[in-house]
Computed example of a mutant assay.
Amino acid sequence: MKPELTIQLMDTHAGGDVSRIVTGGIDPLPGDTVRAQMEYLRDDADGLRRLLLEEPYGIPEMSVDLLVPATDPRAAAGYIIMEVMGYPIYSGSNTICTATAVLEAGIVPKREGKQSFMLESPAGLVQIEATVRDGVVEAITCEGLPSYIHSYRESIDVPGLGTITYSVAYSGGFYALVDARQLGFELTLDEERRLAQTAHAIVEAIQAERGFSHYTLGDVGPLPFLHFMGPVEEVAEGFYRSRSATYVHPGVICRSTTGTGTSARLALMNYEGSISPGDRLETVSLRETGFIGEFSDVQQEGDYQVVKNHITGRGYVIARSDIVVNCDDPMVECDALHHVLSSRRTE
């Protein structure tokens, strides 16, 4: 490869979670769907994810969203989500950021007021509604994945913590849902490190004891996420609010409450009979940012009540840049990039 390569980026955040949108510099990927292209990156070309989430270019708390041409003609663009734990098929915060980026990059021209378009994620087509005022993208509403409660109020003994009661939801990944109060948390910023340590211990204990299977997808791997739930208060008719914190990786509590975490909460509230179609829940993070989830419908799928929902948040552009990848740099592993940068190789 040439000693220097460039990758075009637009850095964004939604609720504090930074999503690094790759807008150019990557070769076309094999695969007749975005899901197949994601699987190619995951199985054969993981170098791009590692490059942009590890030193010297990134940190584990970030996410990367690679823009690709949509394979479905109904979608304006496709995107592949990359995080420190791998390749999730869907993410609310990443979708909000990607939708903001395609508008700001002109891939979808902005129109004043509300406008709708589709993106193609590895999970399939996602309907987007954007609100634009005076040329500014003020809100993005996207579909959350159909969510359901897999297990309700199970107990597990966790070393150093004792017996923990938890429920498990699927909302794009399996989530352990834990009442923060049972562990003495108020869900404030000063608790962040202890929340991460506590969540790690609980997730490790659950992974060691049991696995989970999706009713149509089958085995999707070990439970990766934990969502701490604060008390739910009704602040207006049909509008609820709850402090929340989502753990995604050892040492990492998301800066936002996450879209999939919010979807998981809606599934639990439906399961407990405390929410009705049309009701909304605002989840509030340690940094006082929030997403709003709307419970739109529920249907029975076998043994499960599956909740359809929408997530609303705002994405912000924080940087536009070219990453200069210097293959002479001993901290950069260019050999792991040749699958996606093959056109840059010297003759």
Rank of each mutant, 00 (worst) to 15 (best):
L9E: 10
T12M: 15
A14M: 08
A14G: 15
G15H: 12
D17K: 05
T23R: 07
T23M: 01
T23L: 02
G25P: 00
R35C: 11
A36H: 12
E39F: 09
L51S: 03
E55L: 03
G58F: 12
P60T: 13
V64Q: 03
V68L: 01
A75I: 09
Y79M: 13
G92L: 05
S93L: 01
N94S: 14
N94G: 11
I96G: 07
T98G: 07
P109G: 02
K110D: 07
R111L: 13
Q115P: 04
F117P: 08
S121P: 06
P122Q: 09
V126W: 06
I128L: 11
E129S: 13
E129W: 10
A130W: 08
T131H: 10
V137N: 14
V137L: 11
A139K: 15
A139T: 14
T141I: 13
T141P: 05
C142L: 15
E143V: 03
Y152N: 10
R153F: 05
E154H: 08
G160F: 03
L161V: 06
I164W: 02
I164H: 10
Y166Q: 01
S171W: 03
F174I: 15
L177Y: 06
F185Q: 06
T188W: 07
E191C: 02
E204L: 13
E204N: 14
A205K: 00
R210T: 14
H214G: 11
L226G: 04
M229N: 13
P231A: 15
A236S: 15
Y240N: 13
T246P: 00
G251V: 06
C254R: 10
S256E: 12
T262M: 02
A264H: 03
L266F: 14
I275G: 03
P277C: 11
V284K: 14
R287Y: 02
E288K: 13
G290V: 12
V298C: 09
G302K: 02
D303E: 14
N309D: 14
R314Q: 15
G315N: 10
S321L: 07
D322V: 00
D328A: 08
V332A: 02
H338E: 02
S342P: 02
S342W: 05
